[in-house]
Design a protein around this nucleic acid. Structure first.
Lengths: 224, 224
DNA sequence: TCATGGATTTTTGTATCCACTTATCCAATC
DNA sequence: GATTGGATAAGTGGATACAAAAATCCATGA
């Protein structure tokens, strides 16, 4: 579901890494819900290790905002309030807008063809929100962000996607389609073709902020 | 030095917290330099605890990008390449621009007076870059960001400031003054007065991106 | 002189143990 | 019946111990 999901599939080289990936997957797939307590001993038993590596994984997840860690009171799954969902979308809009703006001048004919091909495949995937459409949609955005050539920016964007993935999942499962998606992607392509970085930035910001209200509405059952 | 530095001064309630704050201070004050190895046992001895809490602190610092953790090969201080410094400033520019944009409609007469008072005090502090000027400058920006009413956004901005602080410190120590700072602050105030959010956003972006080349030039000795 | 390989040392990763904090439960009291 | 207080259980934080990995050192040979 995330743009760098491939990199998350690598086999862990330490127990801490394994615990981290295990917990992150659980969080992304909504196996653990906001407010749930994560008990180190339980999780350690589930993946066959002691509590220590699990505790260390908690620290990383806490730093990424996926869980909350209170001294002597354990680890609970962090949930986003409606306000925080909006806030995350606002932050996404400027970060992904920046990525697009930086990508425009680096666009070449090959990359442009790749983009158009993905758009075609999204079209043929049929229903917006279908499994295949979602994958192509991700590839479409990932390709643009990669073009920006800014690894830390991409990392930050990806971290935000992990945080909101449970809410996105709910949305993709239940919402038929964001009707404007196709048109917005085509406008984006056109801005790329014209080399208009600022316009592409603006389209991306609108593209992201436009989905926020939809998401917030449908995400409510997941809220804490 | 950071906008939320006050919140960092709280007394730690656990050993891990203490280790985290100790290491973060060491990193911000350049006591540890990029590429340096951080040896858990040494640090644990320095603050009188065992390696375990120090290791956990490493995880948090790694998630924040302040150190790099390689399996079985320890913890080294992360340095920023010239490209990464630029990238950080690009990210800062859009995030802080967003914060300003959101702050404009929330500006009231009181907040406006506070801003002008800080600008006055910066003026009277004399030399740009002096200790007092730096503090007022931070307060000035912090006040604006607080007005945005977006806690996670502020947290992210602050995290970026911690990352680049060693480079900023070098800059403030050796560079006389960014001549344009005063003029840019006044333009910002004017945009606030007119309620022009987009213009304020743009000014902030230029304000931040304008300092990047200066910083990158003077930061070179700190690079790894 | 430099490269190679293996023994030794150092450091890291994880498990276990203990002390202390927090949560739970139950009875006594209002 | 609701509230409080205290005993008990559960859970967390941290130190130590031990195994495994990496780094270092030194001798050997080209």
């Amino acid at each position: 579901m995330t743009f760098l999901s491939a990199s998350l599939e690598q086999s862990p080289s330490t127990a801490e890494e394994e615990a981290y990936l295990y917990l992150q997957r659980g969080l992304r797939l909504c196996r653990y819900k906001p407010g749930d307590r994560l008990i180190p001993e339980e999780i350690a038993a589930e993946i066959g290790m002691s509590r220590m590596p699990v505790r260390e994984a908690f620290r990383r997840l806490a730093a990424e905002g996926l869980v909350t860690l209170r001294p002597n009171r354990g680890c609970i799954v962090a949930g986003l309030t409606l306000d925080e969902i909006y806030e995350t979308f606002e932050i996404r809009s400027v970060l992904e807008g920046l990525a697009v703006r930086l990508a425009v001048p680096k666009m070449d004919a090959d990359a442009f063809l790749d983009l158009e091909r993905l758009l075609d495949r999204m079209e043929r995937a049929g229903q917006t929100g279908s499994s295949d459409w979602v994958v192509r949609h991700q590839e479409f955005h990932a390709l643009i962000y990669t073009l920006s050539g800014r690894p830390n920016l991409i990392r930050k964007i990806n971290a935000l996607h992990v945080v909101i993935e449970p809410y996105m999942r709910f949305w993709f499962d239940y919402v038929d389609k964001p009707l404007s998606a196709r048109e917005e992607h085509e406008r984006l392509i056109r801005a790329f073709a014209q080399g208009d970085a600022l316009h592409a930035d603006q389209i991306m910001q609108e593209h992201i902020l436009g989905t926020a209200p939809l998401l917030a509405e449908f995400a409510s059952p997941v809220r804490r």
